[in-house]
Design a protein around this nucleic acid. Sequence first.
RNA 1: GCCCUGGUAGUGUAGUGGCCCAUCAUGUGGCCCUGUCGAGGCUGCGACUCGGGUUCAAAUCCCGGCCGGGGCGCCA
Length: 439
Amino acid sequence: MKRIHSTDAVNLEDGEKCKLAGWLQEVKNLGGIAFLKVRDREDVFQVVLVKKETGEDEFEDIVNIPRESVIEIEGKKTDTDQTDLGYEVHPISIKVVCEAEKPLPLGVVDKVDAELPTRLDNRFLDLRKKDKRNIFELRNLLIEGMRDFFSQEGFLEVSTPKVVAAGAEGGATLFDVDYYEEKAHLAQSPQLFKQILMSAGFERVYEIAPAYRAEDFDTIRHTSEFISVDFEMSFIDGSEDIMDMTSYMVSHTLSHVKEHGNKQLEELDVELEVPEHPIKKITHRGCIEILQDLGKEWEDRPEIDTEAEKMLGDYVKENHDTDFFYITEFPTRLKESTFYAMRKEYDPSLTTYFDLEYKGQELVSGGQREHRYDVLIKQMDEIGLEEEDFEDYLKAFKYGMPTHGGIGLGLDRFVQQMLDLSNIREAILFPRDTSRLRP
RNA sequence: GCCCUGGUAGUGUAGUGGCCCAUCAUGUGGCCCUGUCGAGGCUGCGACUCGGGUUCAAAUCCCGGCCGGGGCGCCA
């Protein structure tokens, strides 16, 4: 007999035979009768064991199977109004596929919570919990929605190398890798490759892939390995085009999640906002002014620090009733290491760069790139970068590079913010950070 | 990198010099119970991060190591 899921059994006739399987979540032994709660991917079903029917020995054997063991049940589906699924199973045979050890390093349905490090150390058990799996089902929908959007808009999904010779920005945040006889690094961004592909004439590309930052971050919104969603597009008139595309992408993606992840969102008690177009834009200078009005004080130069970011997020929520807004026209002095950022024609102290803020936190960073070879060289010079180190990249600018721009979006952070998770690690199956390399 | 903070049963905690061979919950073992679903009742099991020091006395105070957590810088 073929094994079916708990939710499929709902459609069987009363009394029909079936085979179900899953993890023995708990045993409620009342003496003469016992109830087994068995969990599969879809739900939890109940198996009823009556001592008079099974006999004393078998009853004891089954009731003593340790929690979280994998078992297989063949039995009769019996309709009842006493379970959520509307049926229970009267077993003909129960097979222990794999017995779980005791005690569990982490309870799956215990009444006490475990802390995040304990949960991550035992992630396979942690992920057996419904609300934890919901996160990853929604994350899947988020990715699905993005791919759907990009494909619709004529973007080509590409894969660029993660083992690279040079980084997109300074060298301090690169992980070193031994690459045969050479020294190599893990890519911190697909930036330079995306741009090379613009010279190749692909016009619109996107990539969903890991990025690595060897920074001493120890915060609830940083990890050393994260999934970066990047897109790049050519023949743009300015960064407005990039912001428009980003807005549509975010809207499309979130409405996809909302449409297909209704059940999971409800279970996690999350209300999703799908931003309307156009998303509110505030210049960097405008942000500083708002902050001054709000009474924010700085020790030296006014900047948008973490506290300020949250204040702005609250401000926009209150005054414009949205979780989203752009900070535009980032000053050049703040984007110095981003040597490929295009500066404003009329005011070179400003760039075309913007951030998209989501619930008071940076989600997206992007802008128009500098496509003119000589200007690019000049900007690299300003921060002391050697042309030789970027030879392969620069070459792509010498033989016909269109105007272009794009963004990078932190996927894990998107999930975190979307679901109001207290730590970005909740949005990652096996997070990597300054003190975690396993599992 | 800087600042703050913590490490007590499998899990989560109480205890800040003697009342502690350490509290409670959860878990787990045994017994009872035929409709449980945070089941219930009785009963047992299980722990002070490591090293040094102070003291008549250390889970508790001091120093160092190891391992965590949070904030900031920064960033996706």
